[in-house]
Design a protein around this nucleic acid. Structure first.
Length: 426
RNA sequence: GGCGGAUUGCCCGAGUGGUCAAUGGGAGCGGACUGUAAAUCCGUCGGCUUAGCCUACGAAGGUUCAAACCCUUCAUCCGCCA
């Protein structure tokens, strides 16, 4: 990951440029010296997800090119809820929930940026810092005054909502808050560029307008295309439909690795560009590899490895690879020694058994959160495995000799739902 | 405010008194094929102490031996009229 000098060219090659205000002017400012760039993240959940990596890594890309990134947590904006892309009011969260989430998200973001004292040292901010103490009157006079209603109404995010039943004043004010952030970051840190998903274009340019009106300053907007996979799904949805989170408690490193490994061939190259720092030459080589020898899945493997290393650590990569090899190796679990097995199984959900061992169906249902009917169905359909051997008997109970090293059972439903059963020592 | 129409399983949508846990499609899940991919094919798809039982067709009552289906009230949504 050599420092990228021309960050714009890099972003463009990666397919990260959707819209920019004045590209030539931006290029000139970038060349002239460190530029301060910000991106906001609202605390809509208690963790960021894989999709958040796009803007987050983009901040890092600017930093690697010698610019100063600001990661902004939306302690205030998260309070209101961005109406963009939504058809109904957000459910409001309590102040405690929001501040708890902000803490978690900040901690996650810190991992991706370096906070040194140099000219490109990152800054962490929270827009609650400058909005909490602001009075409603100040807000209306200093911010609201600069927003022509006609322009606000014309914005896509607002007009879409007007057609589908309207939106509240609070939601319409979201763009004012976001614009205020831009101005505030300009005043505090000389920030003159904001980046974000393409759906943020309206909010970002609103900020530029406010910057011009209040500070007589120019700035830049840069947006990324909204990424969907080849199935039209939003980036970062697992096959099960849920989000792929960065928080290891919500999505284990193993699950993240498996998510990447299972990426569709058509998306692998795209994801490598968007979600990793792997360079152009290597990505293009991997594209070629995928086209010529798809079964080798070199791109997916590289992606999986990079993602786990970025989000978690290089050590995790090794653990997770060992676990994947053991669980998908297809057999010979008995041959593994206990420490290897234990390490490999650490990523899978597990159930502890004390005393009499329940039936296979009961174990599956409990460990994988299925209904009994579902578990029974799995057995009936031939999709249940005990230590990689198919089990067809609905009444089956694990036998004494099934316990690996006297302590473990490896159950599986289908190809990828692994469950570890551990017996407490007698 | 008045009149009419709607509300069915995760989603869409059939079903107008017994043969309805409810046709069909999508999503999901399992299997085959393969590469832990895509496409395709097959199966499955409320729950349970599973030859049976329980809960379910917006909510609550009622008619009936029997109700998703008929009646009453309520709630929500959509038209037309004021």
């Amino acid at each position: 990951m050599a420092p990228v000098v021309d960050v714009l060219a890099d972003l463009e090659w990666r397919g990260l440029l959707a819209q920019t205000t004045d590209r030539d002017a931006l290029a000139k400012d970038l060349a002239a010296g460190p530029l301060t760039v910000y991106c906001g993240f609202d605390p809509t959940a208690d963790s960021l997800h894989v999709g958040s990596l796009v803007p987050l890594l983009a901040l890092r890309r600017f930093q690697l090119a010698g610019h100063r990134p600001i990661a902004l947590a939306g302690g205030a904006t998260g309070f209101i809820g961005d109406p963009t892309g939504r058809t109904t009011d957000r459910v409001m969260s309590t102040p405690d929930e929001i501040s708890a989430r902000v803490m978690l998200i900040k901690a996650q973001m810190e991992r991706f940026l370096s906070f040194d004292d140099g000219p490109s040292g990152a800054i962490m901010a929270d827009n609650l810092d400058w909005t909490a103490s602001m009075t409603a009157l100040e807000f209306l006079r200093d911010v609201g005054r600069h927003f022509p209603v006609s322009q606000m109404l014309a914005r896509e995010s607002v007009s879409a909502r007007l057609e589908s039943g309207g939106l509240s004043f609070t939601e319409m004010a979201y763009q004012l808050l976001q614009s205020l952030d831009f101005v505030e970051l300009y005043r505090r840190h000389g920030c003159t560029a904001q980046i974000g998903g393409n759906d943020q274009w309206g909010n970002i340019t609103a900020g530029l307008d406010l910057l011009r009106r209040t500070e007589q300053a120019g700035g830049h907007a840069l947006t990324f295309p909204l990424v969907t996979d080849s199935a039209g799904q939003k980036l970062g949805k697992s096959t099960g439909g849920g989000n792929v989170w960065l928080d290891p408690a919500k999505t284990s490193p193993y699950a993240l690795y498996q998510f990447a490994l299972n990426v569709d061939d058509r998306d692998a190259g795209t994801y490598l560009r968007l979600l990793t720092f792997v360079g152009q030459a290597e990505v293009e080589a991997l594209d070629l590899e995928t086209a010529e020898r798809p079964h080798a899945r070199a791109a997916q493997k590289r992606l999986a490895q990079e993602l786990v290393a970025l989000v978690h650590s290089a050590d995790e990569v090794e653990r997770v690879q060992a676990a994947s090899a053991a669980l998908f190796g297809g057999g010979a679990l008995e041959a593994l020694d206990e420490p290897t097995l234990r390490a490999a199984l650490a990523e899978a959900p597990s159930v502890i058994v004390a005393g009499e061992c329940p039936s296979l169906v009961d174990l599956l249902a409990e460990g994988l959160s299925l209904s009994k009917s579902d578990a029974r169905r799995a057995v009936k359909e031939g999709g249940a495995y005990l230590n990689n051997a198919k089990v067809a008997d609905e009444q089956a109970v694990p036998a004494e000799q099934d316990w690996l090293h006297g302590r473990f059972l490896v159950l599986r439903k289908g190809k990828r739902n692994v469950l570890v059963v551990e017996r407490s020592a007698r």
